[in-house]
Design a binder for these strands. Structure first.
Lengths: 121, 121
DNA sequence: ACTATACTGAACCAGATGGTTCAGTATTCA
DNA sequence: TGAATACTGAACCATCTGGTTCAGTATAGT
């Protein structure tokens, strides 16, 4: 069972709620990068990029280390497991709700749903 | 393969980045509710709750229908499948990165801890 | 008809967000 | 040593956010 706190869900979903930051995660998935690298790629000032990295770091999704002048960013210690778990739990709620609806609508299809719930719509 | 657009990810992750809204989703998972019900439960004005519901509705995660004076809210047409897919893809990137790092870590891990290079500040 | 209920919309507010510029500091390189 | 590089921090700005109050409108109940 995966543990998650409201606070850390807040932090990570907030971090993910921005296309640039999702892009940074994707980029770091392909390899480590400096602030300059990232600022370059996402056409933004160093200062602006550093703020985004700060948000990701705060959420634990990115870790950074400064060596010499260069701060290197990499994927951080926290994976997205708790978030995935939250989503999955709620996806099942969805499914349950709609399964209930299905049975109300018609019981014809219940015979077919043998190996798992049918996706509706 | 699940399809997702940056715009809809923005909308849904933004919607999820608030504890009250996650709570509303959880609540609606247990059954439909009116704006008054939800405002009551989350100790908030009707107007405030309606805004939250609006955000969730915008993201397609909640659907509402007004009958008489009462607007009933239920889980919406969009599930969180695309978001789950996004997370899963990135969880795999994480795993891949750390697998790749394993060999490097074998070499470096002890050196780093021994050298005591502390993170700045 | 009158009153209570349920919502709606406009306006306001403080604080956060996503970006910038500018003026530094620390490091590297020639 | 001196210049270029890489970042950092403060300050500023416009807009968004999460809430409120207040003044409506529409519906339901008596």
């Amino acid at each position: 069972m995966v543990q998650y706190s409201e606070a850390s869900l807040d932090a990570s979903f907030t971090a993910l709620a921005d296309a640039t930051r999702r892009g940074v995660l994707a980029q770091l998935g392909r390899g480590d990068a400096s602030i300059t690298d990232l600022a370059d790629r996402f056409q933004m000032t160093l200062t602006g990029m550093k703020k985004h990295v700060g948000v990701l770091e705060q959420a634990g999704l990115v870790a950074t280390e400064k060596v010499g002048r260069v701060r290197t960013c990499r994927l951080g210690p926290r994976t997205l497991a708790p978030e995935a778990a939250w989503l999955e739990r709620h996806r099942q709620l969805w499914a349950a709700r709609f399964d209930a609806l299905d049975s109300v609508i018609d019981d014809l299809k219940r015979k077919e749903t043998v190996s798992g719930r049918k996706t509706r719509k």
